[in-house]
């Protein structure tokens, strides 16, 4: 067991635990804060797996921009945590069935996959090399993605424009 593997297992346990906590929080703000931990952990795993640029981007975009955006929206909407059970009683059996199905399929793949036990050798894609690769072979996709982001900006602007109608205050405080 090398230092790398120890770091990986530590990080993965942090990520799994914080994600698990995040998805079960009633308070949205708490959930988002726990998710920030998740994304930090994921960013470090990215670095460990030889993707420093993506690790930086993960921190900037996910942990920074997206989560802050979520926080903004949550603050803006001002909802109170609901007291209803997280998973309605009628939905337990489908959820458990689905999880079992998922885990079965996962195990099947695990034992069938010949590459499963192949150990990863450390390597590092330096940001410069990665950037050159990206703009040499995937420049068209980059352009398409940039266009998609532009469309997303315009779409968000259009959707966010006030419709000129006040929200219904009678059930506005319920989540």
């Amino acid at each position: 067991m090398t230092i790398h593997s120890i770091i990986f297992y530590l990080l993965s346990s942090v990520v799994i635990v914080s994600t698990g906590i995040a998805v079960t929080r009633r308070d949205l703000v708490h959930a988002v804060v726990y998710l920030i931990f998740t994304f930090f952990g994921t960013a470090m795993i990215f670095y460990l797996l030889g993707a420093p640029l993506l690790a930086a981007l993960e921190v900037i975009i996910y942990a920074g921009a997206i989560m802050v955006l979520f926080l903004f929206i949550i603050m803006m909407i001002r909802t109170e945590p609901s007291t209803a059970p997280l998973i309605p009683p009628g939905q337990w059996w489908p959820v458990i069935g689905f999880c079992l199905l998922y885990i079965t399929a996962g195990f099947l793949f695990m034992y069938q996959e010949p590459d499963f036990w192949v150990f990863l050798t450390p390597a590092m894609a330096t940001p410069g090399a990665f950037g050159r690769f990206l703009f040499q072979t995937h420049w068209l996709s980059i352009e398409i993605i940039s266009l998609l982001l532009l469309i997303a900006v315009i779409g968000a602007l259009v959707l966010g424009k006030p419709a000129g109608k006040k929200p219904n205050k009678t059930n506005g405080n319920r989540i």
Partner: peptide, 16 residues
């Protein structure tokens, strides 16, 4: 969403 995932899983199992 759930049913979509179930279907995808079943398809994956089938192909497996």
């Amino acid at each position: 969403l759930m049913s979509a995932f179930v279907i995808i899983l079943l398809l994956a199992l089938y192909s497996f």
